[in-house]
C-alpha cells in the first residue's frame, strides 16, 4: 500500500512541477515553432542501449512489476543513480508494466528512441533549445536533412552530468633552432 501512495505522490508532485513549469516555456515553444519543424520522426542514431540487457522483456515479464523502492542487489548494479535520486526512482521513467518502453508523466508509453520527450518534461528550456538545434549535437546538412542525437547519447540518463573524458593529443610546442642565445621557453 505504502509504495502505491508513494508513487501516487510522486506522480502528483511531478504533475504539479510540470504544470508550474509549463507556462514559462510553453510560450517559448510556440516562438520556436518558426524553426525547422521537428516531427516525431526525428532521425536519431539508435539509442545507446546495452545489448546485454535489451530487450528488457527478456527478463522483465510484461505486466508484472515490483513497485518496491529499493537498492538493487543482483542486477543492474553497474548503474550509478545520481539523477535527483532523492525524489525519483526507476519507475518514474521506465514503464512499470512494459520495460521495453518508457512512460511520460501523462502515462503515455513511448519508445526508447523518443526518450527526449521524457527528458523534456522536466528540462523545458533545454528541450526547447534541443529542438531548434542549439543544445546538443546535430550532423548532416546545415541547410537540409539533419540528424539529431538523443539526450542519452551524451548524458547517462542515470547520472546525467558530463563525465571528464580523455582529450586528444596536445599540440606541439614550437621549437626553434636558436644559435648562441639559446633560450628556454616557458
Amino acid at each position: 500500500m505504502n509504495q502505491h501512495i508513494y508513487s501516487a505522490v510522486t506522480a502528483i508532485g511531478l504533475f504539479l512541477l510540470l504544470t508550474n513549469v509549463k507556462p514559462a516555456w510553453a510560450e517559448s515553444l510556440e516562438s520556436a515553432s518558426n524553426s525547422p519543424p521537428v516531427s516525431d520522426g526525428i532521425q536519431t542514431p539508435a539509442p545507446p542501449l546495452s545489448p546485454d540487457y535489451f530487450p528488457c522483456t527478456t527478463c522483465h515479464e510484461k505486466g508484472k512489476t515490483n513497485n518496491q523502492r529499493r537498492q538493487l542487489k543482483t542486477d543492474h548494479t553497474d548503474i550509478v543513480f545520481e539523477h535527483d535520486e532523492k525524489n525519483r526512482w526507476c519507475l518514474d521513467c521506465h514503464a512499470p508494466l512494459d520495460r521495453d518502453k518508457l512512460h511520460l508523466a501523462s502515462g503515455e508509453l513511448i519508445e526508447f528512441s523518443q526518450s527526449y520527450r521524457l527528458c523534456g518534461q522536466c528540462h523545458g528550456p533545454t528541450y526547447r533549445d534541443w529542438k531548434v538545434g542549439v543544445h546538443g549535437k546535430r550532423t548532416g546538412m546545415w541547410n537540409g536533412q539533419k540528424n539529431y542525437f538523443l539526450c542519452v547519447h551524451c548524458h547517462d540518463p542515470h547520472s546525467p552530468a558530463i563525465k571528464p573524458i580523455q582529450p586528444f593529443p596536445a599540440p606541439d610546442k614550437p621549437t626553434g633552432k636558436p644559435f648562441l642565445l639559446g633560450a628556454k621557453n616557458k
Partner: peptide
C-alpha cells in the same frame, strides 16, 4: 594554456627547451 594535458607536462604546459630536438608529432 594551449598545452594542457600534454604528455609529461603534469597539469600545465610542458617546460621544454628550445634546444631539444622537435618532439615527435602527436600520435593518435
Amino acid at each position: 594554456n594551449p598545452y594542457y594535458c600534454a604528455p609529461g607536462s603534469g597539469a600545465g604546459a610542458a617546460d621544454s627547451s628550445n634546444k631539444l630536438p622537435a618532439a615527435p608529432p602527436p600520435q593518435l
